[in-house]
């Protein structure tokens, strides 16, 4: 026991020297990368607006007002209204909440699955083969058709189980998560394989520490950085996938605004008065969010990859 503690201590000292803590990396990355700094600012801004906005701007996003159809920008409706007289700002805010919620939840799911599979495959040699074959299999699946089919398939079941909104939410999060974990798994497996050969892991193993313990206290903390890069990619990917599904009319139901859905609705009315704005706002929101997240991810990657660090 004491020995094991010593090993842990030694490892953490070594960590501090070689591997700065993940939050340090984030900070260093952002500090050195102007684009990422702006990206982080924009992303925080969007998250805050979407989270706090609906408490300040309390208009109901699904309230139809037949006296104010397709209006432009005005005091009553800062972003105008759609063709049913629903307030665009309110719809953008609630759409943003859903888009971000989907983004985070799907990212977490995909990270969880990817990390679990990657670590297990990397650590237990016996399972490496089958798990990597499984990963290959998932990589070979044609994703978009599969997504569409799965959504058609389970939509109603989940809807009746969790209600129309939560049902679709779970479904979309699940579907995106389950089809995007493969890259994370590959990266994590690679890192785990490398870590396994390091002294402190070897030491812990030779002392008979259980596999589970080694994974949770030695391996996971040391692969946080690549996981964080995956996380940013995951959010970006999830937001785009959700909006793509909604754009094809297969995502959230029409009375449930998300940015993708708003864009889809706006696109079908291109050419009418005020419709340009109804296309531009949600499109811009999706693009900006994804762009800022990608910038953060880019900076993170630069920071943890010594090979591409500044000359």
């Amino acid at each position: 026991m004491a020995l094991e503690k010593a090993a842990t201590a030694a490892q953490s000292i070594q960590d501090a020297r070689e591997n700065p803590s993940p939050w340090m990396i984030v900070w260093i990355a952002l500090k050195n990368h102007k684009g990422a700094l702006v990206g982080a600012g924009v992303f925080t801004f969007i998250v805050l607006v979407v989270l706090i906005g609906p408490f300040i701007y309390t208009v109901d996003p699904i309230l139809t007002d037949s006296s104010a159809l397709s209006q432009g920008i005005s005091w009553n409706h800062p972003l105008g209204t759609d063709n049913l007289g629903r307030d665009m700002l309110a719809r953008m805010l609630s759409g943003g909440r859903i888009a971000l919620a989907v983004g985070f939840a799907a990212m977490l799911l995909s990270l969880f699955v990817g990390t679990a599979i990657g670590v297990i495959a990397g650590y237990y040699k016996r399972l490496d083969g089958p798990l990597m074959r499984l990963t290959d299999l998932f990589l070979a699946l044609p994703l978009l058709p599969l997504l569409l089919v799965i959504i058609m398939l389970f939509r109603e079941t989940l809807r009746s189980a969790f209600g129309p909104e939560m049902g679709i939410f779970f479904l979309i999060v699940f579907v995106i998560g389950i089809t995007s974990w493969m890259q994370t798994a590959r990266i994590v497996r690679g890192e785990t394989l490398a870590l396994k050969e390091r002294e402190f892991v070897l030491a812990a193993t030779s002392m008979g520490t259980s596999g589970w313990h080694i994974i949770t206290s030695h391996i996971l903390p040391n692969i946080l950085s690549p996981i964080m890069v995956s996380a940013t990619l995951g959010i970006a990917n999830a937001i785009i996938t959700e909006s793509t599904l909604s754009f094809l009319g297969l995502g959230f139901p029409p009375d449930f605004p998300t940015w993708g859905r708003l864009l889809f609705d706006g696109a079908s009315q291109i050419g009418t008065e005020g419709s340009t704005a109804r296309v531009i706002w949600p499109g811009l929101a999706i693009s900006l969010t994804v762009l800022s997240v990608n910038y953060i991810g880019d900076a993170l990657r630069d920071a943890i990859d010594p090979r591409v660090r500044n000359k």
């Binding site: 159809l69 397709s70 063709n83 079908s268 009315q269 050419g271 009418t272 008065e273 419709s275």
Partner: peptide, 10 residues
């Protein structure tokens, strides 16, 4: 079958 205002503005 599309929204009347879309048609009329087109």
């Amino acid at each position: 079958q599309i929204e009347p205002e879309v048609l009329s503005s087109m």
